[in-house]
Write a protein that binds this DNA or RNA. Structure first.
Length: 593
RNA sequence: GGGGGUGUAGCUCAGUUGGUUAGAGCGAUCGCCUGUCACGCGAUAGGUCGCGGGUUCGAGUCCCGUCACUCCCGCCA
């Protein structure tokens, strides 16, 4: 028999009546009636009420015991009287009459209550993460995470994928995020980098002939944190397949995600075959390549309207003449919204750094007219044209932004989200997935004006490879795709470029000559020239999937031991200083401040 | 690197126009209480109002600086 328990804290029921049992767990809560004491004993599995009265020799000691102490209790299971049954508790029909008890782990005065729904400052939660993790909600989140990962492993294995580990200490690569560097003792002056993703390794696995690979892969990027982005490290379901086209990857991932989300959430999926939205279309209609499709609002381009003679909105017209764009967001049936609704959005836009959002509502008396501060600037003919372009109807309103294309697109995307929230038209009980496809291979850096890879430099360009228009690199699309769910970017992937000559050519467009490519990507470029299969893959973010399933807005709520925003682990005190000897061994010296 | 928010008891927070000795709930300690499940009741302890400077007869409150946490922008192939 186990020394510590015969049952866990969620197991006992009426069927155990009169049995002598041993339970171990944490003191979740005490209710002291002076001569009668109730103790809720908690473990990973649940809660059991234990009772003791003053006739027991341990009574005084139990009365004094700190919450969150770990104890072993020996006692008898008794059925509760009808009026004392707790239906909220799985074990609520019984309780354990304590005969003996033993303290297994003392607890000091707590820096934060464990049994409470109260929110606490993150600083204290992170410092005492082991206490925080005892709390119900986050405890459940972490269990969910484990179940999600185990489900994924199982499904991937069933689909014939093999799980491999790839190196954690690898080489730094240009392109992409900032690397975490690790100094090499045996190679003074040289550094390993932690992988930003196992990108090159998974392609090498394909070249090695393994056909289908996956891994729950840790990825390290030294970039600043966000609510949905841990500083430092995160996990991806990294996968790669040989002899596939884009649709083959989509099929696998769609099936996996649909099964996963159905199993672990009660929310409905808006569509089980994810819509495919070309990047250009997404940027036009939603202003972003991670649209929340639960939000029905759409963005329209109305730049041409502001070249008309019968439109007198001079500020916009002047800007349009100098190359600015006008975009609008249409809201349906909003004519009765109070003035404050519109003004608040205009005010909000100004707070976002935009010059504001002009608006009007389309009305009809005898004629079509526009009501609102700028309504008078539009002729009936112009309004009819606007209604044609946007499919707007009488009673609808529109918000206008004007400016340089990048700025307009950005504020419209934000405004779409903001207005959607204000109108409360986003169904929070749904998941809406989509694929964003046809990403451009290259983009122009707005500061340096230089051409750079817009996503992954290893992606395969679309179209006839013999007829690619290298003179117009910005026109080249790639077999590059993202999965988006409810406005959250879950993953990106691509069909890879497995042709070395094409790789050299593409890199040359962003300013790398052949030697540089061979130097920077030696492992891979070399491998591709010894018989590489066409291959492609994707890497959905595990943390963000669990966030969606757990309905959490912050990634730390689904991460067991997260760092804070400044990339510090307050519990383990990392990063920390190291000894002079350690530095010496690594051939490093620190600059004095 | 930049912008916003927050910082008062172990925890969560209140603190009015600058004005007496800075309060509450939870927790802790002590006492009472035999059917609670957020048990109840009474008492006690607990404060560098993040830190530094300034204005003022007087600062938790106003001003300047600074630090910490957090959210956002930049960044994140």
């Amino acid at each position: 028999m186990n020394k510590y328990r015969t049952h866990n804290c969620s197991e006992l029921s009426k069927t155990n009546k009169d049995q002598s049992v041993v339970l171990s767990g944490w003191i979740n809560k005490k209710r002291d009636h002076g001569n009668l004491l109730f103790i809720d004993l908690r473990d990973n599995y649940g809660l059991t009420q234990c009772v003791v009265d003053k006739s027991n020799k341990y009574f005084k000691e139990l009365e004094k015991i700190q919450l969150e102490s770990v104890v072993k209790i020996t006692g008898k299971v008794v059925e509760r009287s009808k009026d004392t049954i707790n239906s909220e508790l799985k074990t609520g029909e019984v309780e354990v009459n304590i005969n003996e008890f033993e303290i297994l782990g003392h607890c000091r005065e707590l820096p934060m209550p464990v049994f409470s729904d109260q929110e606490y400052a993150e600083e204290i939660r992170l410092k005492y993460r082991f206490l925080d993790l005892r709390r119900k909600k986050i405890h459940q989140n972490i269990i969910l995470r484990s179940q999600v990962i185990s489900f994924i492993r199982n499904e991937m294995t069933k689909l014939g994928f093999l799980e491999f580990q790839t190196p954690i200490l690898t080489s730094s690569s240009p392109e992409g995020a900032r690397d975490f560097l690790v100094p090499s003792r045996l190679n003074p002056g040289k550094f390993y980098a932690l992988p930003q993703a196992p990108q090159q390794f998974k392609q090498l696995i394909m070249v090695s002939g393994f056909d289908k690979y996956f891994q729950i892969a840790p990825c390290f990027r030294d970039e600043d944190a966000r609510a949905d982005r841990s500083p430092g490290e995160f996990y991806q379901l990294d996968l790669e397949m040989s002899f596939v086209e884009q649709e083959d990857v989509f099929k696998v991932v769609e099936k996996l995600l649909v099964n996963l989300f159905k199993k672990f959430s009660s929310k409905k999926l808006l569509q089980e075959k994810f819509p495919r939205i070309p990047y250009d279309e997404a940027m036009m209609k939603y202003g972003t390549d991670k649209p929340d499709l639960r939000n029905p609002l759409l963005i329209y381009d109305l730049t041409n309207i502001f070249t008309r003679e019968d439109v007198k909105f001079e500020i916009f017209k002047k800007l349009v003449k100098s190359g600015s764009k006008v975009r609008c967001i249409l809201t349906k049936k909003t004519k009765d919204k109070p003035r404050s609704f519109f003004d608040n959005i205009d005010k909000w836009a100004k707070e976002q750094g935009a010059s504001g959002l002009a608006y009007f509502t389309i009305e009809k008396d005898k004629n079509i007219s526009a009501k609102g501060p700028v309504g008078k600037f539009f002729s009936e003919e112009a309004l009819k044209e606007i209604m044609k372009i946007t499919s707007a109807e009488v009673g609808d309103s529109m918000f206008f932004a004007c400016g340089k294309i990048n700025e307009v697109v950005k504020i419209c995307a934000l405004a779409r989200e903001k207005i959607g929230q204000d109108l409360d038209i986003i169904d929070k009980d749904k998941f809406s997935f989509c694929w964003i496809v046809d990403y451009p291979m290259f983009e122009k850096n707005s500061e340096t004006n230089k051409i750079q890879f817009s996503h992954n430099p290893f992606s395969m360009p679309q179209g006839d490879l013999n007829k690619l228009d290298f003179k117009n690199p910005l026109s080249i699309k790639a077999y590059q795709y993202d999965i988006v769910c409810n406005g959250v970017e879950l993953s990106s992937g691509a069909i890879r470029n497995h042709i070395p000559e094409l790789m050299y050519k593409l890199f040359s467009l962003v300013g790398y000559d052949k030697n540089q490519v061979e130097e920077k990507f030696s492992g891979m470029i070399n491998a591709l020239s010894y018989g590489a299969p066409p291959h492609g893959g994707i890497a959905p973010g595990i943390d963000r999937i669990v966030m969606l399933l757990a309905n959490e807005k912050n990634i730390r709520e689904v991460t067991m031991f997260p760092m804070n925003q400044n990339a510090q682990d307050l519990m383990m005190d990392a990063p920390s200083e190291v000894s002079a000897d350690q530095l010496k061994e690594l051939n490093l010296s620190l600059k004095k401040k």
